[in-house]
């Protein structure tokens, strides 16, 4: 087994993702479930880390806390330069936080079926109040970087699974968030496509200096991580990964 590493956070003290002693308890009294019991994690800008663990270990719970859709029960979270949770939310507008600071990629792409590819990606900057033209320009740039430019006017239902997932990644990146949270992004893809998605995530992470957490069970992609967090019974253990397969 690999040695726990110190992590790259020392180089970027105020960047990326930092989680300290994060706790989450569902319910109360006899039926309470302690899903997270003190999670520590750090992801540097430009880094892609894996988060693996058995079913019920708290992976989704951790993503939901980081994604500011459920409230932790204690601990600290820092995204980018801002402390967002410190024994209580530090940010008044969690919706704007999600929109501006976090990109989400899911197991299924969940594109908006009535918007074409470009507008699916451009939607976020539009919602943030940017002009349509500028938003679409940004979307096209990303689609080009992800090699789906030629499908820019297509509707999501006309795309292949891999293309849809690339569009979803473009959507996650479009607001240049410091953080991307990906929940089983390669589950429905064959190993060729799964590796392609991981290549893209790594390339984008480096290019935009984004900190990426990928929750996965997927044996095909686990070797690609340089660092992996194992989560068990609500606690994380850091491990060095193999960091190969992306060449």
């Amino acid at each position: 087994m690999a040695e726990p590493t110190t992590g790259p956070l020392g180089a970027h003290p105020a960047q990326g993702i930092r989680i300290e002693g994060l706790r989450k308890r569902y319910g109360r009294g006899d039926t309470a479930v302690d899903a997270l019991r003190g999670v520590d994690m750090a992801v540097a800008p430009g880094e892609v880390v894996g988060l693996v663990g058995p079913s019920g270990s708290g992976k989704s719970t951790l993503l939901k806390c980081l994604g500011a859709v459920i409230e932790p029960s204690g601990g600290r979270m820092t995204l980018g330069e801002a402390s967002i949770y410190d024994e209580g939310w530090r940010i008044p507008d969690l919706r704007a936080l999600r929109r501006d600071k976090i990109g989400f990629v899911f197991q299924a792409p969940y594109l908006i079926p009535f918007l074409d590819v470009t507008d699916n990606v451009a939607l976020l900057p539009m919602l943030a109040g940017r002009p349509n033209g500028e938003s679409r320009e940004r979307a096209r740039e990303l689609l080009a970087a992800l090699d789906v430019e030629h499908r820019a006017r297509a509707m999501p239902s006309q795309l292949s699974g891999g293309e849809q997932q690339r569009v979803a990644i473009a959507r996650a990146l479009v607001n240049r968030p410091p953080v991307i949270l990906a929940d089983e992004p390669t589950a429905p893809l064959d190993s060729e496509r799964a590796l392609a998605v991981m290549r893209i995530l790594n390339r984008m992470a480096r290019q935009y200096q984004t900190a990426v957490i990928v929750v996965t069970h997927d044996e095909k992609i686990i070797p690609t991580f340089e660092r992996i967090y194992h989560i068990r019974d609500g606690r994380t253990h850091e491990e060095a990964g193999e960091g190969r397969g992306l060449e």
């Binding site: 994604g67 859709v69 919706r95 704007a96 936080l97 999600r98 929109r99 501006d100 989400f104 899911f106 969940y110 908006i112 939607l123 976020l124 919602l127 943030a128 959507r171």
Partner: peptide, 9 residues
């Protein structure tokens, strides 16, 4: 749900 997650009001 996705729209809400990505920050739609």
């Amino acid at each position: 749900a996705v729209l809400k997650l990505i920050g739609t009001r």
